[in-house]
């Protein structure tokens, strides 16, 4: 790197922006699959991560395990618990990204998690290490705009996009505040609820996404309640990307043995599901 300024300029127009620009040129939306780091164990989750781009992932979201994930439903809660039981730490999650980057320099990686493990790691040290590992963006669920100043400068200095959550409860008066300082893309939480529960209707999305577009030029990805290939196709029809989490975890859980250990099909089942989702997303011309 040739000095921090040129490094950060390079990274801000980094992988996430480049990927969305390329997809726009291609005329299609993004599939953003999720995996919980170290669920159910280090090797299995690494293999899933490594296989996702070839299966059709355009960006990848990695969940950072936390004991108290207050916005997550049972599926992601249990994924976090399995991950913690297998010994996951923040350092391990960053190591996964570093390993992934040794063979893939294009697919953007976004970490999604809760604030306390980041605070515990040290905000400045975390942003430095995440940037160095090859992380492109952060979604911190319990860090609303009102509190975001504690990480903004460190994230920026390390080329990390701060991806903001916008909810159905975020009204027009609040949107500018929520979007200020966000970069990468906007994550639209499509339901008032926790992950893996309800699904927003096409009508709800058709109303919500243009409302957000009035306030931002950033790409918009839809998450919470996007499970099936048809729903993923619906999401990229309405917006620019679809995040699928709980459905992929459920698919993997079905392959675990009675003690929660990975089986011979655990990786394959998830990647097949990613492939089916990708086919559906790619069938939507924009």
């Amino acid at each position: 790197m040739s000095g921090s300024e040129s490094a950060s300029v390079h990274k801000i127009a980094g992988r996430i922006a480049a990927r969305f620009a390329a997809l726009k040129a291609e005329g299609r939306g993004a599939l953003i699959p999720f995996l919980e780091a170290w669920d159910p164990d280090a090797a299995t989750s690494m293999e899933i991560l490594r296989g996702m781009p070839a299966a059709g992932a355009d960006l990848i979201e990695i969940g950072c395990p936390f004991t108290d994930p207050m916005a997550d439903g049972p599926t992601v809660q249990l994924a976090g618990r399995r991950a913690l039981n297998s010994g996951a730490t923040m350092a391990h999650t960053l190591a996964m990204v570093r390993e992934f980057r040794s063979e893939n320099n294009e697919t953007p990686i976004v970490l999604m998690g809760y604030l306390n493990p980041i605070l515990s790691y040290g905000v400045a040290r975390f942003c430095t290490d995440a940037g160095a590992a090859g992380v492109d963006g952060l979604i911190i669920v319990d860090l609303p705009s009102e509190e975001a100043d504690l990480i903004t400068a460190d994230a920026k200095a390390n080329g990390l996009d701060l991806i903001r959550l916008v909810a159905p409860t975020t009204d027009d008066a609040r949107l500018p505040l929520v979007l200020a300082g966000s970069s990468g893309f906007v994550y639209y939480v499509s339901i008032t609820g926790i992950t893996g529960t309800r699904t927003a209707s096409a009508d709800e999305l058709a109303e919500a996404i243009p409302r957000i577009r009035k306030f931002t030029d950033l790409p918009i990805a839809i998450g919470f309640g996007v499970r099936s290939p048809a729903q993923a196709a619906g999401a990229v029809k309405a917006a620019d990307g679809a995040v699928v989490a709980s459905a992929l975890i459920d698919g993997m859980v079905a392959t675990l043995d009675g003690e929660g250990r990975a089986g011979p099909n655990s990786v394959r089942v998830v990647l097949d599901q990613v492939q089916a989702l990708a086919d559906a997303v790619r069938s939507v011309r924009k």
């Binding site: 207050m70 916005a71 604030l115 669920v141 319990d142 860090l143 609303p144 705009s145 009102e146 509190e147 903001r164 959550l165 916008v166 909810a167 159905p168 409860t169 975020t170 009204d171 609040r174 929520v178 939480v189 008032t192 609820g193």
Partner: peptide
């Protein structure tokens, strides 16, 4: 006005709850 007592307190909730 940010709900802080020194450096403690604040409003660390998901965006869905923030307006409420």
């Amino acid at each position: 006005e940010r709900g802080r007592f020194g450096e403690f307190g604040g409003r660390f909730v998901a965006e869905t709850l923030m307006p409420l």
